[in-house]
């Protein structure tokens, strides 16, 4: 397993948001974390990445328990987090944005360079010197993903990659994710859009009010309308 999460609990202040969440991501697979808004998808990601003020539980990444490490240590071990609100450095150029994400090469995972990323995201190649703030929402979304890949991750957490994007760009995004998977990356993505998730993921985890309600292959979820209608509001 690339990532094995068990008994994960997370709090904001006094409020417990996550209740013993468990999920696995195998090497080279794409897992979708599904749930309606407020279900706790973002909180799960932030807890895995160590960005939530208080968390408990076990997060095994590779062969190591990372649940007590600070964020940057987790990221340096090969876990990338792409937040839902993009958070491009608007005063930096595309090239400089990529530079911020750069980490040393890692054994056994693809090594990304700006050139290789421009191949994966052809739109970006045309605007290397453009300031992040002068890009449209879709281009910014591509850039956040590219920026995370510069860390040569084993696993990428993608929070709602399709949100706020034009349908055509969502399609480009789907192709990019499939291409990343082909490179051998594991991907955990959160989605409300079952159509999109279904196109690209192997397995699904459904979460509601911070509890896991379903975990299994994507095909199984799709064949259980009762499950996804109950928890996903499709």
């Amino acid at each position: 397993m690339t990532l094995r999460v068990s008994n994960l609990c997370g709090w904001y202040g006094q409020a417990q948001i996550l209740f013993e969440v468990a999920l696995d991501v195998g090497p080279g697979s794409v897992v979708a974390l599904l749930g309606r808004n407020g279900a706790g998808k973002t909180t799960t990601f932030r807890s895995i990445a160590g960005l939530v003020p208080r968390r408990e539980g076990v997060v095994v990444f590779g062969d190591q328990d990372v649940s007590r490490l600070p964020t940057y240590e987790i990221v340096r071990r090969g876990l990338a987090f792409v937040p839902e609100d993009r958070r491009i450095f608007t005063d930096l150029t595309v090239e400089e944005n990529l530079e911020v994400g750069r980490q040393p090469p890692r054994l056994g995972v693809p090594h990304w360079t700006p050139e290789r990323l421009y191949e994966l995201f052809p739109n970006l190649a045309a605007m290397r010197r453009r300031l992040g703030g002068r890009m449209s929402g879709g281009e910014q979304q591509m850039l956040t993903i590219a920026r995370s890949l510069m860390g040569n991750p084993r696993l990428v957490l993608l929070d709602e990659p399709s949100e706020g994007l034009a349908p055509k760009i969502v399609e480009d995004m789907a192709h990019a994710i499939v291409a990343m998977k082909r490179e051998g990356l594991s991907i955990l993505l959160s989605e409300q859009n079952l159509h999109f998730a279904r196109l690209i993921s192997d397995a699904a985890v459904v979460i509601e009010s911070g509890h896991v309600r379903f975990a299994g292959p994507m095909a199984e979820l799709v064949s259980h309308p009762d499950v996804y209608e109950a928890y996903l509001a499709v």
Partner: peptide, 20 residues
Amino acid sequence: AIYLGEGLVHGDLAAAQVRH
């Protein structure tokens, strides 16, 4: 061409295929 794309994501799911 510029916006809706091929309709992979919204619309007819059964017909939609992304090469894995």
